[in-house]
Amino acid sequence: MSAVVTALAAASGLAPGRCLLVAGAVLTGQLSVGWCNDRVDLERDTAAGRSDKPLVTGALRPRTLAVAAATALALCVPLSLAVGLLAGLAHLLGVGAAWAYNLGLKRTPLSWLPYALGFGLLPAFVALGLPGAPPPPVWAVLGGALLGVGAHLTNVLPDIEADLAAGVRGLPQRLGRARSRVLAALALLSAAAVLTVAPPGPPGPAGWTALGVTGATALLAVLPVAGREHSRLPFLATLVMAATAASALLGRGVGLGPGSG
């Protein structure tokens, strides 16, 4: 995701130095959130037998990971603010929402909100870092937020039963697997449509092709496959979809600066 956001920053006209700051801020923010999540979920992951987690296997000590998460967050703050005050505050709001998710919001019906904020504020981070701090295009924030909701749903799908057993009752767990799949498809397809049709200028053949690819990816990400209910492929497909949508925007020469809608 840091590569996608950095590419959008470059296409939007952000100076090379600030593009590097954007890359560093997004990367450290993501690392802090991921490491925080692993530390908070240690007991649940252990109970679920998550052998893909270093904490569960004993390859990494909990204190080490906690220190790493705090260090990444401490680095994220100055890197974000160095892009610009408003830009930095927007990015840190998204990172803070993700930490709030890890620390308890995931257990509530508002579990989708941190993902919507986190993804939706990434284009705001880029736009507000431009000279004059122009407001981000509405279509970019909306498209990002819809992608975030879809990412939340596809990320949770493999673990719904284990989450319920552990007392985690976010929105997907309350909806159940079938309804969560439908909602994920709607969110991802809506995101694809917004990011194709709403930016300035005609989509052109490349834009419509990208819509077809992202739409198909969205459907594949949520279609039930027997024996693969616990696969991580739906979430990975969502990330691929986000990269495809961003690539289509770059191919059309659409950035996030003034005149982008």
Results as ranks from 00 to 15, higher is better:
residue 50 R to Q: 12
residue 118 G to S: 15
residue 130 L to H: 00
residue 78 P to E: 02
residue 130 L to S: 01
residue 234 P to S: 08
residue 205 P to C: 06
residue 122 L to P: 02
residue 180 S to D: 08
residue 5 V to T: 13
residue 84 G to Y: 01
residue 9 A to C: 05
residue 160 I to V: 12
residue 77 V to A: 02
residue 115 Y to N: 07
residue 134 P to I: 00
residue 201 G to C: 10
residue 69 A to R: 01
residue 20 L to I: 05
residue 56 V to P: 04
residue 43 E to V: 13
residue 71 T to N: 03
residue 147 L to Q: 13
residue 110 L to R: 05
residue 246 A to E: 07
residue 182 V to D: 13
residue 36 C to P: 07
residue 41 D to H: 12
residue 119 F to A: 10
residue 129 G to W: 00
residue 216 A to M: 14
residue 165 A to D: 15
residue 80 S to L: 00
residue 4 V to M: 14
residue 81 L to P: 01
residue 117 L to S: 01
residue 162 A to F: 08
residue 54 P to E: 11
residue 207 G to S: 07
residue 94 G to Y: 00
residue 216 A to E: 09
residue 205 P to R: 09
residue 258 P to W: 03
residue 69 A to C: 06
residue 230 H to D: 14
residue 169 R to W: 13
residue 35 W to F: 15
residue 69 A to N: 01
residue 5 V to M: 07
residue 151 A to S: 14
residue 240 V to Q: 10
residue 109 P to R: 02
residue 60 L to F: 08
residue 27 L to D: 15
residue 132 G to D: 02
residue 260 S to L: 07
residue 227 G to P: 05
residue 207 G to H: 04
residue 175 L to V: 07
residue 238 T to N: 12
residue 2 S to L: 14
residue 175 L to Q: 07
residue 188 L to F: 12
residue 203 P to T: 10
residue 30 Q to E: 14
residue 209 T to Y: 11
residue 238 T to V: 15
residue 61 R to F: 06
residue 133 A to K: 03
residue 212 G to P: 11
residue 43 E to Y: 09
residue 62 P to W: 12
residue 114 P to I: 01
residue 67 V to R: 10
residue 227 G to W: 06
residue 142 L to M: 06
residue 244 T to D: 14
residue 121 L to G: 01
residue 53 K to C: 14
residue 156 V to W: 09
